[in-house]
Simulated assay, not measured.
Amino acid sequence: MEASFLPPKHLTGFGSDKLIGYYAIDKKLSIKILSSLGKEEASFGVFPSEYKNFIYRFEAGGLVVDKYKNIYQMNVSSPEIYKYNKEGKLIKIFDNYSKRFRYLQKDLSDDPISIINETKNLKDISLAERLFLLNEKTLLIKLRHKNNFGILLLNLEGKLLHEHEFELKDNLVCAKNNYLIFIKNQQVAKDSIYVNPILIIYKLK
């Protein structure tokens, strides 16, 4: 890898010989197209300024690329999706489809001591936690709410494929090629220190 390469929040392939990453470094947010060795070739991206510190601090959101090299970016602050073409030009912003999503009312501060206290009050908000390319035609948004998770399915033009958000108790960790992989924690027995979680795999038809 290039000596200048720094690991992004999210990294995925971009065609046969490039990479693309979602970066939050030195409080600067950007999407970067990289060579196969990690050298920066282009930088772009649209980010909501009202949640800049929140996005910078939290490892969530997502970045995926379809077979046409269109780029889809989601920030932790909202399940809105920013769609770019392969040159990095913004094409469309998909609206927020979740009626259950609870937004952060005020961005986190820059002061490290204040942030410690502010993060304690984040338990009641929702997070746009992961974005997956479920198959060639479908995006999957994973949301984390206070007491459970939510899933939204939409096509590559932003149209919902199911009218309602799916509510889930188990944690979705991967979605690809129409497979959904969840982690389910087992109840710990009284005489046991730790019990391995269970992986549950579903295939969508």
Rank of each mutant, 00 (worst) to 15 (best):
I55A: 09
N70D: 13
F47C: 15
F14L: 00
I141N: 05
L153T: 01
L180D: 06
K159F: 02
G61L: 00
D26K: 12
D191N: 12
H145D: 00
K39S: 07
L156D: 06
L122W: 13
Q186V: 03
K69W: 11
K123M: 08
I93V: 15
E165Y: 06
D110Q: 10
F14V: 02
L143K: 03
N85I: 04
F132A: 06
N185D: 13
I151Q: 07
N147R: 08
Y103Q: 00
F149R: 02
T12L: 00
N96L: 07
F166N: 00
P79F: 10
K67R: 14
S109V: 13
Y97D: 05
N177R: 12
I91C: 15
N177I: 01
L11D: 01
E129R: 10
L199C: 03
K169V: 02
G45K: 14
E2M: 09
I25L: 12
L90K: 14
N85H: 06
K69T: 02
P7E: 00
K169M: 13
D111V: 02
L37H: 14
G45I: 10
D66L: 04
K106F: 08
N171M: 08
Y179G: 07
L161S: 08
K205V: 14
K67D: 02
N70L: 06
E118H: 03
K99Y: 08
Y202A: 01
P112F: 15
N70I: 02
K205P: 15
G158R: 09
L122H: 15
Q187T: 10
K86G: 01
L143W: 08
N185Q: 09
E165C: 06
R144W: 07
Q73P: 11
E167G: 04
L172V: 01
N171K: 10
L161Q: 12
G61A: 04
F58R: 01
L127T: 10
S98E: 06
A3C: 12
L108G: 04
S36T: 03
G21M: 03
V195Y: 07
F182S: 09
N196E: 13
L134V: 04
Y82L: 05
K176E: 05
K205Y: 15
N121Q: 07
D110M: 13
G62Q: 05
